[in-house]
Each structure stands twice: as structure tokens, then as C-alpha cells.
């Protein structure tokens, strides 16, 4: 439906549920929820035809806060759940939401293979560089010298994971980074991600001011990425490998790989046809 010429059927609030989020005041995830509903209103997708799939963690609570079909599964397994759904039901719009721990640590293998498989889903990863739900442990994107956790009082000493560079190398078909300080921009990027065929990866810097109060400074540290997106994976990779993680607000890469979409049409064979091979 053309939203320019026809009155919008759905507004952003039509995509919200009545359930109050469990998030702390000031959590970046509120912005993502709001941006997500704005994006869907922009796309005018009927809520009954959209599914939001997540794993475990603060940001993984999003499905129940929307009015769409939701699946809140186990820790780290949102991507395969969403992939199974989308492959079996290609008519649905499938979104995956979650945090850095859920998607990149316990779900790390699925992240690689989801990028590789390139099923037409949009993965919104809310990166706050900390495990919030378990009260403040280092995540795979935490800096090695962060000493704020009792579990790793000397810091982790482990290099952080680079979600976008790794996602790109693994085959993600769309790569973008944005910041919750600019929810309209987050909404725009989600719209583009949903529209782009294949696996779309959106990293949203989403501060956890409870366990990482220093992230309040992110609004000063981020800058609008100085370049427009590229369709050249090698160029996108060079940019990602040299950036400091604070270039936001832009799509960085748009690929043109054919999405994984098995033909469900069948050959017209019946079960009786299958049985014939066994007959003696």
C-alpha cells in the first residue's frame, strides 16, 4: 500500500502491547521498541503477519511488548527459531531481536550460520556490552579491561567480538549500525533492513545505564558515519576493520546474494507416489 497517497491503516501504537517492559528507566531498549513500531507503521505491515523472535536477556523481552506474533525462546537460539519459521512460512515478515550475549556468545555459532544461510529475516542486535539480566557481567563485546564485574574483577583480558565485521565475513546481506539516541534513524534503518532481501544485520548501540553508567557518554562519542553504503563487501570490510565502533546512523553494506528460500511447491507427487518405491 502506498503510504503517501492513502491514509495509514496502522500507527506505531498499533504495534505495541499493553505489557509494561521490565527494563530500567533510561534503558536504550525503550528506544529500539519505539523505533521498531515506527518502522512497522512506515511499512504498514499488518501485525498479524509479522513475527518477532527472541532468545533470553533484557532486550530479548521485546516480543511480548509488541502486538505482533512473538516467540520468546531459549538463550542463544533465536536465530534458528526464526530461520525455521521463515523457511516454513515465507509469507511472514520475521524479525529477530536480542542482545550481544544472547546473539554473539551462547548463540555465536548460529550467528555465523544465519549470516551464511541468508534467510530473509532482519536481526536487530541491541549491543550494550554487558549482561544486564544477570546483573552486570562482561559480554563478548565488552572491552578486555572493563573491571566492573565481580565475575571478572581484573577484566576479561579477551578481545571484543566485532559483530558487523564478522557478520559481513560470514555472509550477511545487509549491515548497518545505529544508536538509540536517534530513534528516528533507528526506525529508518530498520525499514531499510526489512525491505532488503536476505539476512539483514542491524547493530544498535543501546546503553545499559544501570551496569555501564559510563555508556551515558555514548551520545557524545557517536558520530554519523562519514560515508554512504557500499555494495562492495571488501570495501565494507576495510571500513569495519578500521572503525572504532562509533560510526552510526548509516547502512554500511548492501549485498545482492540470493536469499535461502527452499521451494515449497512440491512436484505434485502424493504420499501414495512416495510409497510406490517400496512395493514388491
Amino acid at each position: 500500500m502506498d503510504t503517501q497517497t492513502q491514509a495509514a491503516r496502522y500507527s506505531a501504537k498499533d504495534y505495541k502491547s499493553a505489557i509494561k517492559p521490565i527494563w530500567c528507566p533510561g534503558c536504550g531498549d525503550f528506544s529500539v521498541l519505539s523505533a521498531l513500531t515506527k518502522a512497522l507503521a512506515e511499512l504498514q505491515l499488518p501485525p498479524g503477519r509479522v513475527a518477532v523472535v527472541s532468545g533470553i536477556g533484557c532486550s530479548s523481552r521485546i516480543p511480548a511488548y509488541t502486538s505482533m506474533y512473538g516467540f520468546h525462546g531459549v538463550h542463544g537460539r533465536a536465530l534458528p527459531t526464526a530461520i525455521g519459521l521463515k523457511v516454513a512460512r515465507p509469507d511472514l515478515t520475521v524479525l529477530v531481536t536480542g542482545g550481544d550475549g544472547d546473539g554473539l556468545s551462547i548463540g555465536g555459532n548460529h550467528f555465523l550460520h544465519a549470516c551464511r544461510r541468508n534467510v530473509d529475516v532482519t536481526y536487530i542486535i541491541m549491543d550494550n556490552q554487558v549482561y544486564g539480566m544477570t546483573k552486570g557481567q562482561a559480554s563478548p563485546t565488552t572491552a578486555p579491561d572493563w573491571e566492573g564485574s565481580k565475575l571478572t574483577p581484573e577484566g576479561t583480558g579477551v578481545n571484543p567480538f566485532q559483530p558487523l565485521a564478522i557478520g559481513l565475513a560470514a555472509g550477511a546481506n545487509f549491515v548497518a549500525r545505529c544508536f538509540t539516541g536517534d530513534p528516528n534513524n533507528v526506525a529508518e534503518i530498520i525499514v531499510e533492513a526489512i525491505r532488503h532481501p536476505g539476512f539483514s544485520l542491524v547493530q544498535v548501540l543501546s546503553p545499559c545505564i544501570t551496569f555501564r553508567p559510563e555508556q551515558k557518554d555514548w551520545k557524545r562519542l557517536v558520530r554519523t558515519a562519514p560515508v554512504e553504503f557500499t555494495t562492495d563487501a571488501a570495501r565494507a570490510a576495510r571500513r569495519l576493520m578500521t572503525d572504532d565502533g562509533f560510526n552510526v546512523g548509516k547502512v554500511l553494506y548492501k549485498g545482492s546474494r540470493e536469499p535461502f528460500r527452499p521451494d515449497l511447491g512440491g512436484s505434485g507427487a502424493t504420499v501414495a507416489d512416495l510409497e510406490r518405491q517400496f512395493l514388491r
Partner: peptide
């Protein structure tokens, strides 16, 4: 679908069945 491991297999079928 040949999945990347059994964790993916079981969650893919859960997703498909949810659908």
C-alpha cells in the same frame, strides 16, 4: 534443512511448528 548443529535443528523445527 541441514542445520549447523542439533541446537539449531531443534529450534528450527520449533520455529516452523510455531508457524
Amino acid at each position: 534443512v541441514q542445520a549447523e548443529d542439533e541446537l539449531a535443528s531443534i529450534n528450527q523445527i520449533i520455529g516452523a511448528s510455531y508457524g
